[in-house]
Nucleic acid binder design. Structure first.
Lengths: 93, 93
DNA sequence: ACTTTGACTTTCCGTCTTGGAATGTGATTG
DNA sequence: CAATCACATTCCAAGACGGAAAGTCAAAGT
């Protein structure tokens, strides 16, 4: 019930942020984590391969920016992980 | 505020358990995690080197068993980590 | 007293993860 | 068409993890 994909510190932050904001720009996430582009890119790939996020590059006017959002599966996985975490943290025995 | 020493899945379980039980036997922790002796031993060493747990081997009657407990520092570190986690998980924005 | 156990501890080893830097790529702007 | 932006990949090196095997050392057994 402990999702390793979600539990890694940086990915947990990404998921928490996305869960709260529905969608976010690549650069915002990168600055949030304070890591290099390559690092965020790889984390997003892990999440994407797990089917937890979708990545879109709306090719409208201006530069191509990347937007990330949680998929239904991702939201479920994150929610489940949060439940598991809270259960562990609150064990009052 | 995110403590890597505490955040690793298995060590988080160890800390959560110890936080709730004040002291625990080696074998109990090993079974709780479902890992090999060597693995638990190494995790305990990490926690010990961080000053988060104390290990005692009461040499009374019977076999020598190992008991583990959180130190004040360990309890503080764990509590702080829990606070950081909850803050992250509950971010409502 | 000496060998055998029990209960870990260390070492060995292979795999996986993580991170940054360098490089590559495709679209966009000058 | 060259330069640039926004990422994606590749390249590397450092650690983290885990299990198995070997090492330790006190307590039991004989």
């Amino acid at each position: 019930m402990f999702d390793e994909v979600v539990h890694a510190p940086n990915r947990l932050r990404i998921c928490a942020f996305l869960d709260a904001s529905s969608t976010a720009e690549f650069s915002v996430l990168r600055d949030l984590l304070g890591v290099a582009d390559s690092v965020l890119s790889k984390h997003l790939k892990v999440l994407q391969d797990a089917g937890y996020v979708t990545i879109s590059k709306p090719t409208g006017r201006g530069r191509v920016k990347t937007w990330v959002s949680l998929t239904a599966d991702g939201r479920r996985a994150y929610a489940g992980h949060v439940v598991a975490l809270k259960a562990l943290l609150n064990t009052p025995e």
